[in-house]
Structure formats: C-alpha cells, structure tokens
Write a protein that binds this DNA or RNA. Sequence first.
DNA 1: AAAAGTTGTCCAATGATCTAGACAACTTAA
DNA 2: TTAAGTTGTCTAGATCATTGGACAACTTTT
Lengths: 245, 245
Amino acid sequence: MTTQGRSRSGYTAWRLIAEELRREIVDGKRASGAKLPTEGELAERFGVHRNTVRHAVAALAAEHLVVSRRGSGTFVAEHTVLVHRIGARTRFRDSLGRRDSNSARLLDSAIEPEPPAEIGERLALDGRPALRLETLQIVGGLPITRTTHWFVADRVPGLANHFRATESITLSLRAVGIDDYMRAATTVSARHATVAEAADLGLPRGSVVLVTRSLDVLADGTPLQVGISRFVADRVELDIGHADL
Amino acid sequence: MTTQGRSRSGYTAWRLIAEELRREIVDGKRASGAKLPTEGELAERFGVHRNTVRHAVAALAAEHLVVSRRGSGTFVAEHTVLVHRIGARTRFRDSLGRRDSNSARLLDSAIEPEPPAEIGERLALDGRPALRLETLQIVGGLPITRTTHWFVADRVPGLANHFRATESITLSLRAVGIDDYMRAATTVSARHATVAEAADLGLPRGSVVLVTRSLDVLADGTPLQVGISRFVADRVELDIGHADL
DNA sequence: AAAAGTTGTCCAATGATCTAGACAACTTAA
DNA sequence: TTAAGTTGTCTAGATCATTGGACAACTTTT
C-alpha cells in the first residue's frame, strides 16, 4: 500500500496500515486465531519502520481485534460480523438480537414539540409533538448500533418506560397496543462517524458508520416510526431481503 | 469538534475538519451555492489556525465540493446525492443511469479458470471457468461505482465486447440471449476504500465506500451473476425497495 | 474612492510523527 | 540447554504538520 512514508493524505502512516490490516481481518482473509506476519515483515511490506507498524497494531489491539503475545506473535482475536436483515418485516431483535448476550440501553428520550421538518413530514405530524428515543444496541458486549427513533407522541404513551423494561421497541409498542407494523422504506448510506457517534459507539475517531433511515407503517399505511440507525461498519453487514413476506 | 490541535487519532487536524464540513454539505445542512463561514470563523470554531482550515477547504475544493473565490468567499458547489434503488428488479442503468450524462467503462475482463471459492459456490460453477468483468460507472462526469462482475464463462460468450459497445450489462446480456433475470440477494457493508479503489474512483485516500454484494438469478433460479460494487459513499445513497415488483 | 472584508501566498518557529538502531523479555523449536 | 525468532521499551535525530504573522490580490459595501 503506502510504499513511502510521505503521504499527504491527512492520515498518519500508522493509521493507513491499521485500516489495511483491519480490512483484511473483517473481510475474512485472516481468520480468528490466525497469526499476523511479524512486525518486521509488516514493516517491510508497508515500507515503514517497525515502530510505525507497532503503532498500527497497538491501535487494533485497543479495539480487541488482535492480541499480541511477547515472544510468540500477534494473533487475530475472536470476532464475528453480525448480519442484520432488512426486509418488510424487519425487527431489530429478531435479526441481531437472537444471540447469547445482548442488550439495549435508552440513552435519552424527550417529547419534541418541533421536530426537524423532514421528520414532521414523514410522520405526517401536522403540528403534533413527536417523541424521540435515543437507543444503543449492544451485542456480545460491544455496541453495534445507535438509533434515533421518532414517533407521534400521543400515539405511544409511556413508550420510553416500556423500552427501559423490555429493551425492545417491538415489545414496547405491543405494550401500548400496537401489535403489527411493517417496514415501508429504507435508505442506506455510509460516512465517517461524527465525534458524538464515535463516543456513543466506543469507536476511535474516523471510524466508518453505516446509516439507515427507515419508515415503519401500520397495516393501514399510517406512518408509525422513523428510525435513523448508525451501525458500526466493521461489525455489521446488512442483508437485503428481496423475496420477503 | 476537535478543539485542540493535538489529536493522537492518526488523523491530521485538517482532515478531521474537512470531513466535518463534508458531512454538513452532503447531509444537506449547507445547500448548493451557500456561502461557507469565512476561514477566520472556521478557524475559531475548530480551534485551529486559519492555515489549517485553508488546508481542509483546499481538500474539499479538490473534490469539487466547494469553490473558493478570492475576495468574496467559499461556496458550496453544485452537487447531488444519487439515489440507487435496490430491489428484485434492480438494473444499474435504470436507477442511476437515467440521467443526462453518464457512461460506463470496461476496465478489465478475463476468463478465470479458478475464481475465489466464494464465487464458485454462489455461481454453482462446479469447476467451470468464470468470466470476470471490471467496470466503472460514471454519472455527470464523476465516477460513482466500481463493480466486479462474475459470470459462468460459457453462458455469456463475448459479453465483454458487447459491454464495450452498449455500456450496459442488461443490454449485453440481451445480446447473448438472456432477456430476464432477478436479484436474489444483496448484502451491504461499508469501509474505507483500498488504495486501488481510491485510485479507480478518483478519490482521496481514506474515503468511504459502500459495498454491495449481489446475486442475480434467471427465472428458473439458476445463478447468473455475482456482483461486487463499491459506491462512492459521499455521492450515493441506496434505496431499499420493500414493496417491489 | 475609500474602507472593510475575504481569499491567496509566503516564511520562520514549534511540536508531533516517523525513522533508526540497540537491547531486554519472552516463547518456541532444535 | 541453546539458539533463533518474536514482541516490549527506550533514546536520538529527521521529517512533516501546524502555528503565527505579515502582506498581496481581489470583491463588496459604504
């Protein structure tokens, strides 16, 4: 890759190396438990000094993606890429949540009398206040996604409390009498995480997030929820369900 | 955001600033034609020297995202986020291609006797050779996506030549007698571009790409094509068609 | 016409990153 | 036990990013 240490890219050499190695790991080219080339070999491959490689490896170790053992080498840690299915019947816990250890935390919730114009339109608020929920989904001890949920406030009374108890949007909605809903639209984009997102998701700066914007509707087509989810790109892959229902 | 020039994040200060400004622009917070704050104001906001802000703005100007005019200010350039629809009937030109100026280039093509195991499986090759096409899709003069297409070689004779002439996979397939096919599966992920991808797409290093892996099948379910597309995340948004057909 | 505001260019000083090399601590294989 | 191979730690110097400031060139407002 870099060849020369120069690089006027705005990235330090060690970060470029760390990203290249991370890509090789999450793409599956280096399996869990596999031994990385020695620091000397990597230094030669990337055309930098061994100390610079060490800096890169230390960054990956801080993310628990690799483990270094003095005297023997550096090894790829246990890791899984979660697959999150998106379809007309998408429910968060159904796709990501069916695992051993997972939880969801409510970071914040508030009634917003004047939500952003885009939210007002998609929810057909017509001046009614909206309810905003900020949640963090954790799987296997690691934050996976940070979601902002928007509802029509008076249609889901006490939703925040139900969520704190059930840790599930689907169950909380059931508790307020909404049994069925469907995914009407989803858009996907990607970008660097903002500073706030990186903090919430426990990521180093400059990490990539997959952003989905979705609209859920009731059986009769009434808009129910707008969701904006930011997934940790290194740990999640979205699976688009084409032949759904 | 950064507050202090230090940042042991592996990112230079100017790059963090450039990314923050880019996000504000592509998220629509700064419309086309809008004037950016002056370099002095931005320097104060980010807590850096004006020269550092200038570096960040120069990077955005190199991407044609902003235009600076001496004496008057820096302005957001014309830009659009393309929306690429993904559904059971996804055709590339139908969603991105229906525009004024667009084209597709064939970067490379080759018969691969031994493609990667994953490709062999998904195409049900059973030892038959595969055809690999590398294409670059350009819209409005800017590269949008870089795709690797895999086919069963003997099912699509001369496909590369047809593509060179028609600039369309759909039309090229029609030319070899394949009139209808459907999208069977799509997965979406995101990451930093590799050095090669950045070069092909004309991007600065460290840019984000949206990666889709898709499988197209014939009406009877026979696998036809595996496609791996890398979209420029700053210029494209994927729209998941839930109620397709 | 003048003044104020803005971007463009340059230079010297400072601080952070990277290179370079040596050696210690530990593991594995001979 | 020994030797070879590997990661951990440290120091000094070189290179590059950033600061800080001054002034030029240009545009807009007064």
